[in-house]
Structure formats: C-alpha cells, structure tokens
Computed example of a mutant assay.
Amino acid sequence: MDIAALAAWVVTALGGFVLLARWIARGGLRGQQTGAARFPAPLVFGHFLLAAAGLVVWIVYLAADMGALAWTSFGILVAVALLGFTMFARWLPVYRTPAPATAEGDTTPPEAHLPVPVVVAHGVFGAATLVLVLLAAIGVGGS
C-alpha cells in the first residue's frame, strides 16, 4: 500500500506540475495584478508547497518506517485536498463559461486554459492518493 500511495502521489504531482506550468504560462501571476486570475497566487503555491512537503514526508516515512510520519503525511494531504477542492470550485465557473475570442486586452482568466483531462486526472489521482495514504497509515496491506 505504501508504494501504491507513492506511485499515485507522483502521478498526481506530475499532473499538478502540468497545471501549474500552464497557469503560469497563461498569465496566472500577471493576472493577480489585473484581476483576471480566479486563483490567488497564495492558494496555488500553498497547494503546491504543501503537496511537495507531504510527498517528502511520505518518502521519509517509507525510508524510516515511522507510523507518525504516515499520519503527518496524511494530515498534510488533507490540507492539500482542501486547497485543491477550493481551486476546483473556483475553476468550475470559468470552465462552464465559454472563453471569448482572443483580442487586444483579453481578460480571459488563465484558469480557462487548463486542460480538462489533466484537471480531472489530477483530482482523481489526488483522491486516490488520499485514500491510499490513509489505508497505509492505518496498516491495511502492510507487513
């Protein structure tokens, strides 16, 4: 279960990197000043940094086999999931509203350019990671 959780976490992180890079490339940081971005930068980077920290804690747990680290990682992951769900809730209205044609002074939110399959896969793998980490922390499938 431990390795399955690690694999799911790594796949989730890869999808997250794609989304983060796309958000930045499409003006996510510039959109903070213009008001075009629906995701506040602290929300985006808080989600990213907490997820990375949780992954590091999980890797240390795998190396040290300390149960407290598994639970710490799970707690961090719950916070990551809450931030991710907040971003998903902010993204839905942007996704549902058709983007206007690109023009001079375009105010299309950068979130409108996020690829839907990657958003969905990131969320599904994130949820799977949360469940697998919980199962590993309570000792299901362990030795």
Rank of each mutant, 00 (worst) to 15 (best):
G141P: 07
F45C: 10
V119S: 01
M66L: 13
V60I: 15
L43W: 02
Y95W: 09
L82Y: 00
P117R: 10
L29D: 08
F39C: 03
G126V: 06
W71N: 06
A36F: 07
W23Y: 13
T97P: 01
A36N: 09
F48V: 12
I3F: 11
L20W: 13
G67S: 13
M1V: 11
I59M: 13
A52P: 01
R96V: 00
G27R: 11
V124Y: 02
L43R: 00
G139D: 12
L130I: 06
A79P: 00
L83A: 14
V18P: 03
G27V: 09
V118G: 04
L20D: 10
L55S: 12
G31T: 06
V78G: 07
G28E: 05
P40W: 02
P40F: 01
G15D: 11
A52L: 15
H47V: 06
A51Y: 12
Y95A: 12
I3D: 03
G75V: 04
V133I: 15
I59H: 09
Y95E: 00
G123Y: 07
P42G: 02
A137P: 04
T107D: 13
T97D: 11
A79E: 00
L69D: 08
R22F: 00
L69G: 06
L43A: 05
A52W: 06
A7Y: 09
F125E: 01
A81M: 12
A64P: 00
A64N: 06
H113V: 01
A53M: 13
P42H: 04
V133K: 14
P115G: 08
Y61Q: 13
P109C: 04
E111S: 06
L92R: 14
L77F: 06
R22M: 12
S73F: 05
V60P: 02
L19A: 09
A53N: 04
G126P: 08
T34L: 01
